[in-house]
Amino acid sequence: MITILTNKILNKSSTPSKRADGRASDDLRPFKIEAGVLERADGSAYLELGGNKVMVAVYGPRELHIRRLMQPDRAVLRCRYNMAPFSVDDRKRPGPDRRSIEISKITSEAIMPAVFLERFPRSTIDVFIEVLEAEGGTRCAGITAASVALADAGVPMRDLVVACAAGKSDGEVVLDLSEAEDKDGEADVPVAIMPRTGEITLLQSDGHLTSEEFEKALNMAIDGCMKLSKAQKEAIIKRYGD
């Protein structure tokens, strides 16, 4: 595909960059977050980020029927990240694979510090993340949407966890890698934070970065988180505020 860069797009850039979609190195892709989109779930959210489309449904806290998973002093937080078979160009085999299982686990770990699980002994909070369309960075998109869905479900939290990745593509440290950038990318650093305190709840690093580049990527990702955090709050205010 040929992308024509217009002056308008180029002028928008705060830092010169050679990114294929004309973004500045510290630009996020266009995004949109909505809260409370599903009637049947206790809480839900929908998020678009670039070509990603993610739907999250939350059920609970509710009765946990599997006794061996039951915790006497708190709820368990179960996340299931799933990519729809039609979410990628090559039809994906349905059901959990190793990658989905890993992402489900890290999503749960990223969100858990914000949730008051101790208020619901022996119960479960189930978070279903469905990636409808994937275009790079779905694990972070899932975390960001899941927090909104949890708030929509009235689950007590100290903050809304938000996630964003930065990385290195074409020799440059950039924010929010698209699928194309990620494919040829040299590194990817997904970060989740509790924005009020700045506490990091997820930090992964895939690929090769100098310590200087890593620090730059981390700071960039945190800035990206702060922008998405604003959109998370606006989504809830739009749904429930006056």
Binding site: D42, G43, P61, R119, A151, A153, G154, V155, Y240, G241
Partner: peptide, 9 residues
């Protein structure tokens, strides 16, 4: 006073 629905405790 929650504006969302609340867990049934």
């Amino acid at each position: 006073v929650p504006k969302t629905s609340s867990p049934a405790v």
